[in-house]
Nucleic acid binder design. Structure first.
Lengths: 228, 228
DNA sequence: GAGTGGTCTAGACCACCCC
DNA sequence: GGGTGGTCTAGACCACTCG
């Protein structure tokens, strides 16, 4: 089955936004312009714009046009992804320690989570977040390299991965899984804990209209971290 | 401006469902049937069905038709309080073991949680919830005795505390705290675990307009319980 | 007045499902 | 084969915004 025309147009529009060529509040082509450009009827061009508006990517105003919507920040659970904000808002100091940042091929778990074929190019980042001098979060993040090719060139001592992704992409949604786990050897080491140690572990996926952007495991020491 | 036709059709469909005349999985009229019935084009009838499907009210299958979607249960976190519902919905058997049900005087922690003076009359219930034969939740619940005097006379092998409270009171809200803890001796015993064991612990308070009704600690074995 | 998005029409072809 | 939903077309009228 061939790709639907309205979907091609959606992807074109989304790419312009995701690549940064169209910043927030940028005016996007009108229904008629897209209809001419893609040689489709106005109803088909309209559907692409309308669905992106439904997904929160565009804002449309009668008589004015369609515009790139301001990129969303977080909802309640996503605050955990934005731990820097959490910490600084409490008046404490946040800093990070970069453990690794590298290109990998997706294994089975990551492929499933990111909806990619096995051995697809992904980036992996591991970072420890500190609240004052207390290690409070171990972040292990896989990113779809095709959707965010610039990820691996970032300086994650200056910006957190979550902030970086939020700035360049309109993240439309996220799903979360919360569980309690015993810290393994690496976690004990990076979070400077002594066994046995219960940790609160969140597994999150960030979405855009084009698919899953990142798959992240956030691990927190149980005695220093609660989710309200 | 007159009401949009597609909106009138949406409201008609929604009313049939909300009134109970069309139960879950009931087949709703097809696009062509609605188009005839309301004297509109198929595209307009289609829009009504499509938007209701986007909103999760209908499920549509090519070649089959459109059907009333199963009604949503409560939000994810509240499901935890209603673990019986969770378990039975997954097609597994739920039963409970009552450990204790007694009158107490509130200590400092409970007094603060229930907004009561110290040594106020409260009821305390401890219950183990089983999923099939696996202990999956240890419930420790304090209830404001003044607000729910009948609590202590209930048979909690027949009804869960949460169901009982939901039935006699309009619970307006609940707040939750999620943390990871190492199981203590009692928890290990009642949940039949071997140390060391990480547990996901939820602390919840249920409110009505009159004040805090109950203060509950729900403890789940980490390897058998996730929060989605 | 020109352009925009919002609604609507009367057709069309297709893939899918069930009989 | 007949009905369903999924996609698409080439028109139309409207209310709105802006210059």
């Amino acid at each position: 089955m061939p790709a639907a025309k309205y979907n091609s147009i959606k992807q074109f529009l989304f790419n312009e936004i995701a690549s940064g060529r169209w910043p927030e509040h940028h005016r996007v082509p009108s229904e008629n312009e897209l209809a001419n450009q893609f040689q489709v009827s106005r109803m088909t061009a309209r559907r692409a714009l309308q669905e992106l508006a439904d997904e929160g990517v565009l804002l449309r105003t009668k008589g004015l046009g369609s515009f790139v919507a301001p990129f969303k920040s977080q909802s309640s659970l996503v605050q955990v992804q934005n731990i820097e904000h959490e910490i600084t808002q409490r008046g404490q100091r946040h800093h990070t320690e970069l453990i690794t940042l590298e290109s990998r091929e997706s294994d089975q778990e990551v492929s499933i989570a990111l909806s990619l074929p096995i051995a697809s190019p992904v980036f992996f980042a591991a970072i420890v977040h500190y609240q004052d001098d207390l290690p409070i979060q171990l972040e292990a993040r896989y990113v779809n390299a095709r959707l965010v090719p610039g990820f691996i060139e970032q300086d994650f001592s200056q910006i957190t991965p979550h902030d970086y992704l939020s700035k360049i992409l309109p993240l439309t949604e996220a799903d979360h899984l919360v569980e309690a786990v015993l810290a393994d050897r690496q976690t004990l080491h990076y979070l400077k804990l002594n066994p046995p140690q219960a940790c609160l572990q969140l597994t999150c996926r960030s979405w855009t209209a084009l698919g899953v952007v990142s798959y992240t495991r956030l691990t927190h020491p149980g005695q220093h971290f609660r989710l309200g």
